[in-house]
C-alpha cells in the first residue's frame, strides 16, 4: 500500500475492555450489606458477605495493546474509580 496513513489505520484493531470497580476491602458497603440482609429474608442460607461494584465495557481502536492498557489504567484512576475508596481491575481482549 502506498498511502502511509492507510497503512497505519490498517494496523489498528478492535479491543474490548471489561473494567471492574469495587469498594476497597474494609470500606463499608451499605448497598452490599442491605442486599445480604434481603437475601437472608428471602430464605437463602449460608451467604457470608455481599460486596457491590460496577462493571464497564469499553470498545476501542488501537494498534498497541500495551498502550491501550496504560490508557485504561489512567481512565480508571482519573474517572471510573475514586482511589480513596475504590479499587479496580480490567481485562483487555
Amino acid at each position: 500500500m502506498s498511502n502511509p496513513q492507510a497503512m497505519k489505520n490498517k494496523k489498528k484493531r478492535h479491543f474490548q475492555a471489561v473494567i471492574y470497580v469495587k469498594l476497597k476491602d474494609g470500606v463499608l458497603d451499605p448497598q452490599g450489606s442491605t442486599i445480604k440482609r434481603a437475601l437472608g429474608n428471602m430464605g437463602y442460607r449460608g451467604i457470608e458477605d455481599v460486596r457491590s461494584g460496577k462493571v464497564f465495557e469499553i470498545t476501542l481502536n488501537s494498534n498497541n495493546k500495551e498502550e491501550t492498557e496504560k490508557m485504561l489504567d489512567q481512565i480508571c484512576k482519573k474517572l471510573l474509580a475514586n482511589p480513596v475508596i475504590e479499587k479496580y481491575n480490567f481485562e483487555v481482549k
Partner: peptide, 16 residues
C-alpha cells in the same frame, strides 16, 4: 472531594 481540593470521599448513607 472529587476534584481533590478536599481530602476523603463520600459513601452511600448508612441505611441507604
Amino acid at each position: 472531594l472529587e476534584s481533590g481540593l478536599l481530602p476523603g470521599a463520600m459513601l452511600r448513607n448508612q441505611g441507604l
